[in-house]
Design a binder for these strands. Structure first.
Lengths: 313, 313
DNA sequence: CAAATAGTGTCTATAAGACAATATCTC
DNA sequence: GAGATATTGTCTTATAGACACTATTTG
């Protein structure tokens, strides 16, 4: 899961360690006098965006169940943001890597292990957290809803699946000297039963000649703790763009699925309808047909497929 | 440059701050007793990959100057890795954001400001740094070589431009229970005059059904400090993939350039030759022709173009 | 049979790859 | 004219979009 170990067993590294610095110390002497408490340090947390696709209840027996994207949120039992909802996450311990901390959070909230996980972004504004300086690395995990543990998480403590919706509120182009600024406001909405959370994020891209960089900021947040709205918005963007050029979507599918269900997942994430023939053509090399079919569907049954991993090709 | 501010001026946030927690405290009371030194904290650094394209000297007056990708490295004057070369970088201060720290490093090493910068990845293995626990966020910046400051950096203190080469050493597929593991070893080589640094990185992708995640590790490092080899390899991968679907390459170009020079840059980054007609067709909507031409070239002069920013379309 | 989804065929438009051919400069 | 790069034209191939049409199940 992206853990980056380091092997420093190079022959000439030992040589570098024997060299003397400007105080005449070799590396060992330097490390012995190194004062860890010399500088004030920030806290570091790992926060987890856990996405899954869940079915909505459906009254018409003929229609396919509508699916939607869900995100795991945890209600805060402590200050700050007491009672508000936050992404599962916590401080990185000194004896665990960043990835291990993220995996730990994932496991403790959902019971899941070994599912798809990737690092998203590290948020480092000075006053992100009222307690103290906190730098947070956001991760994204994708779970397939049929996993046993997923359902279990639902009635555990304060973790809940929220139905996730988003839309672009406005796009604005501001001309500045030597270029322009593009602002896009994006609204995120989270719903679990009668709990409704929302927030707005502004992404500003500054162009001077070429793109210089982008800046994210929280415009408003209702019930979503810290700057987690922008982590969610950022994660959604990553998911949307990666579903177009990777096989990431199959991590949201059970082992056997219909092509219609797969198309639904693409449509939900991309937020637009796709044409079935083109979709099937594009997916053909990525799936393997089985001899099984859905049944009792109220309409023509559908063939079940499984994923053909890239490495099997 | 990706700074993520937070505005918590929501009406119901004030309400949350007045709520009492399990000890009967409101937020203010909680914050007053919050002990910052309760937990041991890691250090955080921001490290900068600064890429540029530089010309090689050329003896044949008729041929175009060969270009190549260069990366800024700094020689370490302190333990650990004394005398080895590292990416420009340093500890994040308590009163600056992560992005500000990265921009500060960029400026102090090259004198550059306001150029393209993006966050790459955060490296969080436990023993990355022999001094203490250090978590490092890597950034990538792109500079166009004609900038005045770039040349200046070259004779400043211990910062140098290294010509950057890379190649895939081997790709291996290992079958494991329930899936497979794909290992790819990549070699990075840095050359400045008679200084030659190199290192090898292994990227392991584990598949169990679908892709679970990828793991990076340093196999060897000769003259490159810490785990900076893998930061470089990661940055190269990001640059290579983003040049295909964004306009990122124009950040490496001067304001006026020929299509051949632009093509050279694409070829260097992608590590393969491109067909000129297809390349020109694809670039046509992204550039604007000027009335200027190159001259004294020893061959047919070439028309100069400038970038047409996305937002102008 | 109606309702609903599953799945196929095909025409068109657009983009990418390959390569030949022509243009224009300097020494 | 030779050598080098610049630039255009065109044929082929692959892919994506649009839409009509056929197939199969259940109440």
């Amino acid at each position: 899961m992206g853990e980056k170990d380091h092997d420093s067993s190079s022959s000439s590294f030992k040589e570098a360690a024997q060299r003397l610095d400007h105080r005449g110390w070799n590396e060992q002497q330097y490390l012995e006098q190194y004062d860890v408490s010399e500088f004030e340090r920030p806290s570091v947390t790992a926060d987890m965006l856990i996405f899954t696709i869940l079915d909505e209840q459906q009254d018409n027996y003929r229609k396919l169940p509508e699916k939607s994207l869900h995100l795991m949120m945890v209600q805060r039992g402590e200050h700050p943001y007491l009672g508000w909802w936050a992404l599962p996450g916590g401080f990185v311990a000194m004896n665990e890597s960043l990835d291990e901390a993220a995996a730990r959070e994932l496991h403790s909230e959902t019971g899941l292990d070994g599912i798809y996980m990737e690092q998203l972004y590290t948020w480092g504004a000075v006053d992100r957290d009222p307690r103290t300086r906190v730098i947070s690395t956001a991760y994204m995990a994708l779970a397939d809803s049929t996993r046993q543990q997923i359902q279990a998480g639902d009635d555990a403590q304060d973790a809940r699946w929220f139905k996730l919706g988003y839309r672009v509120l406005q796009e604005k182009k501001v001309h500045i000297e030597g270029g322009c600024r593009l602002e896009r406001d994006m609204q995120v909405e989270l719903v679990h039963q009668d709990i409704r959370l929302s927030g707005t994020v502004r992404v500003t891209r500054t162009y001077r000649g070429t793109l210089n960089g982008e800046q994210w900021q929280v415009l408003s947040s209702d019930g979503i703790a810290f700057d987690h709205v922008q982590m969610i918005a950022y994660g959604l963007e990553r998911l949307r763009s990666k579903i177009e050029y990777t096989d990431i979507a199959f991590n949201l599918m059970p082992p056997l699925f219909t092509l219609s269900a797969l198309q639904q997942v693409y449509e939900i994430v991309l937020g637009k309808e796709l044409l079935a023939p083109a979709f099937r053509r594009k997916m053909a090399p990525r799936v393997i047909a089985t001899n099984e079919y859905t049944k009792d569907a109220g309409h023509r049954p559908s063939q079940l497929y499984r994923y053909r991993p890239e490495w099997e090709v």
